[in-house]
Amino acid sequence: MLNIENLHVSVDGREILKGLSLEIPAGEIHAIMGPNGSGKSTLSYILSGREGYEITGGSVTYDGKDLLALAPEERAAAGIFLAFQYPVEIPGVPNATFLRTAVNAVRRGRGESDLDAIQFMRLIKDKSRKLGISDEMMKRPVNVGFSGGEKKRNEILQMSMLEPKLAILDETDSGLDIDALRVVADGVNMLRAPHRSMLVITHYQRLLQYIVPDRVHVLAHGLIRRSGGPELAHELELTGYAEFAEGAEFTDGKAA
C-alpha cells in the first residue's frame, strides 16, 4: 500500500527527516510515536502534499504510484486522507457545503458521478449521527466556533465520507478529554477494513489503547529508531522517550 524509502526532507535548509523508511501493507494500522519535534507532523504533511517542504532524497510509493508527484487533491482522490492535528476554520463556508464539495470532488477524481443533494443528505445523516454531529453543526461554517472535540469528530466524519484507502491521523488525540477521545476512537475503529490502512501519529500511548495498532514505530530525530508490536507502546508509556534523546545509542536504526 505505502512504501517510504530513505526519505530525506528539509525545511528552510534544516533536515527534518533523515532517511526515513517505512512500509505499511494494506489493511494494517501502524502507529508512529515520538517526542515533539521528531518529524511526525512533517511526515504527515509530506504524505498529504503540503507545500513548503524540500524533498532532498528517497521515494514514496503508494499503490504502485509515485505519491510525491501528485497534487494534494489528486492524492485525496487516490485515497489518501489526513486528519489534521489542528483542523482549519473556514469562515463563511457551511460545513455541509464543504463536505458535499469534497465528496463530489473526490468522486469525480475517482471517475464516479456527483451525489445530488438528496443522496448526499441520506449518506451524511447516518454517519454524522454515529459521531454525535448535529444538523446545526452541519450548517455552521467549517470548524468555526467548534470545540476541540467537535473539530476532531468533524475530521472523522470527513474521513468516513471520503472513504480513504490510507488514513493518516496526526495527533488526533491532542486536546481531547477521555470521553471525546472514545467517540473519536470508536469512529476510527468503525472505519477499520481489510482494504484500508491507517497511520496513527501520536505522542501518547493513550490513543493506542482505543485504536490498537498492528505495528508501532518510534520516530526520533528524523529516523525510525525502533519498531515493534502494540507492546512497544506500553513500554514507552513506562520509559518515556529519554532513550531516544539526541546522542543516545539506538537499538535499532531501521523500521521493520
Binding site: A71, F84, V88, P91, F98
Partner: peptide
C-alpha cells in the same frame, strides 16, 4: 491546503474560500 487535501481542486478551493469571505 485543507480543502485540497479533501480532494477539492485548487481553482475550486480558491473559489470556495472567496465565496466564504463574501458570504461573511
Amino acid at each position: 491546503f485543507f480543502l485540497r487535501a479533501r480532494g477539492i481542486p485548487e481553482a475550486e478551493a480558491r473559489a470556495l474560500l472567496i465565496q466564504g469571505f463574501i458570504g461573511g
